[in-house]
Amino acid sequence: MFVATLLKRWIGLSLLLGAAGCNLQKDIDVDLPAVPSQLVTECYLRPGEIPRLTVSETTPYLSTAQPTLLTDVTVTLTLPNGQQQKLQFRPGLDRLTQKIYTHIGQRALVARPGDTFTLDVQDSKGRHVTGTATMPALVPLDTVEWKFNDKTGEQRKAYVLTKFRDPAATADFYRLQIHKDSISVDSERDFTLDDRLTNGTQMTLGTSYRFSANDTLLITLYHLDEPYYRFLQSVDDARNANGNPFAQPAAIRSTVQGGVGVFTVLSSDRRTIIVK
């Protein structure tokens, strides 16, 4: 899949660049079908963190780029013990994550692997989104190691290898991120993968020679639930289909019902290393 995707992207990009270079592109008017606007929710629960959620809505593609803030949405989070927690409408910017949120809880979340949470989102227009998410088991990073090439000066670079053991009894899905210096910036590397070919084995993921001496790296391994993994795939496929004649348009596989978006509980392990 990776190869086909790579190939299609390469061809698509070449066509776009070639067409741009030869003045073979032009703006056109298109008459798009009207589709009803849906609620979009984005909520990643993390143990020990105050729950935050972003609600927006789908818009016609060629409408103005300015997002509309929805002020009439009520959000209820149901905890594993059945207790319901209202998330307050209090839009803001999380300084740590640099993410915008519209609703926020009051207490830090207590969550253990296997705990199931339920989300209920409603607005005054009758739009109603629900979702359920169960926290995956923690899969710890076994080893994080690095190795320098035999070059000198600025050419001296290191690669990083991360290893972890995949549980044999289940189909598992992962996301591995490597950040430099701070997790608030975009990652240096971001992989998503499943264990289809490596079930029950030690899994190894690595980078090319790209890190310099004394770089501080934060390596985060997320053990994902399958719906979230499929959602990520479908988002990637949908984005890739815009501007690539070789790609098939893909429907978004939301993890929520009644709208679009994702509701999941993140289970992660993180290591911080200084490459020396």
């Binding site: 993390r46 927006s56 818009t59 016609p60 593609y61 910036v185 975009d186 949908a238």
Partner: peptide, 19 residues
């Protein structure tokens, strides 16, 4: 097939875009 609609996705902490 052309996309009729769109939505913004911020992604998790340490990835993706803001609105």
């Amino acid at each position: 097939t052309l996309p009729a609609g769109r939505f913004q996705l911020q992604d998790i902490f340490g990835a993706g875009d803001q609105l």
